[in-house]
Simulated assay, not measured.
Amino acid sequence: MPTRLRNGLSAALIALACLLAPFGTLAAWAYGLADTGRYVTTMAPLAADPAVREAVADSVGTGIMQQIPELDAGPLRATVAPFVHDAVRSFTRTEAFRTAWDSGNRALHDAVLHALHQDDLRPVTVDLAPVTAQVKRQLTDDHMPLAQRIPVEHTAVAVLPARELAHFRKGFHVLEVAGFWLPLTAAALAVAGIAVAACRRRAVTATALGTALGGAFLCLALAIGRRLTLADLPEEVHRQAAGAVYDALTATLRTVSLLLVALGLTVALTCWLTGLLLRRRRASAAPAPDPQPQPTRARA
């Protein structure tokens, strides 16, 4: 095969591999979240995050106040509301809340997976009754007025609307395929591009730089995605909580992106230094040119 054709084919294969690498990494990360145990482990530290606890206390406290008809109007609402919110806030600092947080996330994840694998169009919901029961018990122990009137009902809070299930189900099925095949295809294309190159060191350097560029692209995409995700949340408390959740879910992807950048730059620098050293060795090992004989002058 001619050298120019080999170099052209190598460049095309390496460019395609570097293009698929960040998308393969993103697909593998997204599909990895389908593992319930990994998801629960990822979300568990958020139970101690102040912004998340404050958002939970605000949502649950408001929900409890709305469930007591006697507090719909009048000065009693303004009197009881701070105690209810303080009770919920106090509950979020207990071990029982962390247990309920893990159990709730596990149940939510199982419900989402079940909905994605089934064909029914029922919305995915989460039940807040266990949290409400804990808060009611604490308010009752504190002799709070109307605490016994708080209804502990199995309230289904919609997490994934039914109208969006079809789109999420299609995307999940794509991730099932892409999460495995995209990274494998990117690796195979990179190996093939390096193998057919006329200068393999240069091909390895190009692959490494392309990989580093893909990792940098992922880091930039994560930063833009975070900004866009939080831009639609008007309340500061919920914005901070959503930011904490976003950071927890994308921590692995962010680490892999930085690893791609570091690994790509390291390999590229190693190839450059190795090539420089080999050129110097060849230059020093080359025999010195023979001196040109000096022409002799004829005697007069």
Rank of each mutant, 00 (worst) to 15 (best):
P2E: 12
R4T: 10
N7Y: 07
S10F: 05
S10H: 05
A15R: 10
A15I: 07
A17H: 06
C18H: 04
P22Y: 06
T25H: 01
Y31H: 14
D35N: 12
T36K: 11
T41Y: 08
A47N: 09
A47M: 08
A48E: 15
A51I: 13
R53H: 09
E54N: 12
A57E: 06
V60P: 02
G61V: 06
E70T: 07
D72S: 13
L76H: 03
L76N: 05
A81C: 03
A81P: 00
D86H: 05
D86V: 01
D86F: 05
A87D: 07
R89F: 00
S90Q: 07
T94F: 02
T99K: 05
A100V: 01
W101A: 00
D102Y: 00
V112A: 10
L116V: 00
H117L: 11
H117E: 12
Q118W: 03
L121Q: 11
T125G: 02
V126W: 00
D127V: 04
A133M: 03
Q134P: 02
K136Q: 13
Q138V: 09
T140W: 02
H143T: 04
M144T: 15
P145E: 09
L146Y: 10
L146G: 05
A147K: 07
Q148S: 14
P151F: 00
A156Q: 15
A156W: 05
V157E: 09
A158S: 13
L160G: 03
P161S: 08
P161V: 13
P161D: 06
L165S: 05
A166I: 14
A166V: 15
F168W: 00
K170V: 14
G171M: 01
G171F: 00
E176L: 14
W181K: 01
L184N: 04
L184S: 06
V191K: 02
V191Q: 01
A198M: 00
R200M: 01
R202H: 03
A203Y: 05
T207V: 01
L209P: 01
L209A: 04
G210H: 01
G215M: 07
I224M: 12
G225H: 08
G225W: 10
R227Y: 06
T229M: 12
D232A: 15
D232F: 11
E235H: 15
E235I: 14
V237M: 11
R239W: 09
R239L: 11
A244R: 08
Y246Q: 09
A248Q: 09
L249F: 13
L249I: 15
T250C: 02
A251T: 04
T255H: 09
S257W: 08
G264N: 06
V267Y: 04
W272M: 14
T274E: 12
R279H: 11
S284G: 05
A285T: 10
A288T: 15
D290T: 15
P291C: 02
T296E: 14
A300V: 09
